[in-house]
Design a protein around this nucleic acid. Structure first.
Lengths: 238, 238
DNA sequence: CAAAACCTTTCATGAGCTGTAACTGTTTTC
DNA sequence: GAAAACAGTTACAGCTCATGAAAGGTTTTG
């Protein structure tokens, strides 16, 4: 049974939505705490997110963007504001569907089933910046072409995508590759990273894997340094 | 540049749509002969089809179904009738988007770019009955899981999907595998078919490969003989 | 049943993924 | 600026797995 997360602040509306979906044979999870929506969603791992745009205190747009940037599940955006601007914005952010409420039961259900159908079998596609990675087969989709990565290269790339800041420590990478962090063979990791880099370059990918000294590696988009976080560098005692 | 096929009978509307899309940076191909739409589309191989539902003499629904049943490109359904029935029907048939005209320029363009974005990198996904096959990597998507088929098994499955009746002669299959029909190694073909069958069974696929004695093989859905489509046999045939 | 067509299993070959090892290059630290 | 720590590369041998050949089994047809 497909699971649908309903992100909506107004209790009545939430209940109604949930009921409607449940009657149609879906399992629903209602989210009413909006401070860590993406985190909650990642734990739930639903097949679809129905997202209300105007939540209290947090931007629905922001949530939508976060979801599409990190997680593989589709988003149906719902809003009471019948503004073109909202729709365009939401679609730009990668929402998979857009509906204004109130809307008829059949229309909602049709859209829901349509989105779910479109995602059939694609539940395991991880979205990276500008490419897609199949979690199971490590098939990499980029530039209208696809390649099956060798298992190890796939695991490495997957590990990067799983971290929200795209930075992975060496032992995390080793764990991903060999399931153990105990006796890390640094060199073997190096070799596999080199291979991944070569593959990525060969595919014309602009993303780079750069070292984070003493820590691990980060998958970066193009040239952007992304060094804001260095403000917190560890300082020795004065 | 993305290519969009516009299937619309009313010349004014067609011209307007086409112009709008071209201004937005797409290449457009206008289709105004509606007897062999799917065939034309297969030759054009567009990135997206914008399909008007009420065409003269042919059912837009039927065209939509045919496209989704055979070809890998997305369909945006457009109709002047603002009827819920149409929308639901179209979505059931697998349309990727639905809009009613007249509709605002921005809305259309947003939906178009949204659909195209969703299909990014998926241009090579062939749709079979109940599964998807990546033409390049032979990654098979079914039941929310994916597998990479060995090259030969992939080629065989691809060959079946390429034939509209899902029937392929032995020499066609041999050509697909080894590029030559000259010295057919019947046995090698057999072995590869056996392997494909085993793989499919292992994945729980209900489709069967059945022999067509003296000819070749057919990929069939479940038990159904699949002869229902004959209702739509071309009447112009002698 | 007998022939033809179709199917399956087994085995050696070869391509490509993998970790090891030896080596080179770069950055940090004093 | 030199040593040390860290990072990156290349070559190679072992292993896994897809593949085609061979050989024998099963089903269909008349």
């Amino acid at each position: 049974m497909k699971r649908i997360a309903v992100v909506e602040d107004e209790p009545l509306m939430r209940e109604e939505l949930s009921l409607m979906l449940r009657k149609a044979g879906y399992e629903t999870i209602e989210i009413s705490e909006f401070n860590h929506v993406t985190k909650q969603l990642e734990e739930i791992s639903p097949d679809l997110v129905v997202l209300d745009l105007n939540l209290p205190r947090v931007s629905g747009f922001q949530i939508c963007r976060e979801i599409k940037g990190r997680s593989p599940f589709p988003v149906l955006v719902l809003t009471s504001r019948d503004q073109m601007k909202d729709e365009l914005h939401a679609l730009e952010l990668g929402a998979d569907e857009y509906l204004t409420k109130p809307c008829r039961r059949e229309r909602l259900l049709a859209r829901v089933s349509n989105v779910l159908k479109r995602y059939e079998g694609r539940a395991n596609l991880l979205e990276g910046p500008g490419f897609l990675l199949d979690r199971q087969t490590y098939t990499l989709y980029i530039n209208n072409s696809s390649t099956v990565l060798p298992k190890n290269q796939g695991k490495l790339l997957e590990t990067f995508l799983a971290r929200s800041d795209r930075t992975a420590a060496k032992d995390e990478l080793c764990t991903a590759l060999w399931g153990t962090t105990e006796f890390i063979d640094e060199n073997a990791l190096q070799v596999n990273l080199t291979r991944l880099k070569k593959t990525m370059a060969g595919l014309g990918m602009k993303q780079k894997i750069i070292p984070v000294r003493g820590v691990g590696y980060r998958l970066e988009n193009e040239e952007e340094p992304d060094w804001g976080k260095d403000m917190f560098r560890n300082k020795e005692d004065p």
